[in-house]
């Protein structure tokens, strides 16, 4: 069966986020005065074909450890769609 999951990689709390800070500045310059904070994050939508639905999350966690996230600066969350 086909399973889809969204894997979101975000910076750990307290890590500098120049991309978010720069976007906040740009939005403010564009006149969006209500914007108080912007955080950047990245989402990968992964489609798998598997007969082993209950281990999908483990498999995706392994993908995060091996490639998608650097644990020094990032954390990840997995949402099965």
């Amino acid at each position: 069966m086909m399973i889809q999951a969204d894997v979101t990689i975000r910076l750990k709390k307290g890590m500098a986020d120049p991309e978010g800070a720069n976007t906040l500045k740009a939005l403010t310059l564009l006149g969006f005065k209500n914007v108080k904070h912007v955080e950047s994050m990245k989402t990968f939508r992964i489609t798998l074909e598997t007969d082993d639905a209950k281990n999908v999350e483990d498999e995706i966690s392994e993908m995060c450890r091996k490639l998608l996230a650097n644990p020094v600066i990032q954390e990840y969350s997995i949402k099965i769609l």
Binding site: A16, P18, E19, N22, R65, N70, V72, I73
Partner: peptide, 13 residues
């Protein structure tokens, strides 16, 4: 097994 440090986006973005 996993990275021990990181090279991240420049402060200047």
């Amino acid at each position: 097994a996993e990275p021990e440090i990181a090279l991240t986006i420049n402060d200047s973005d």
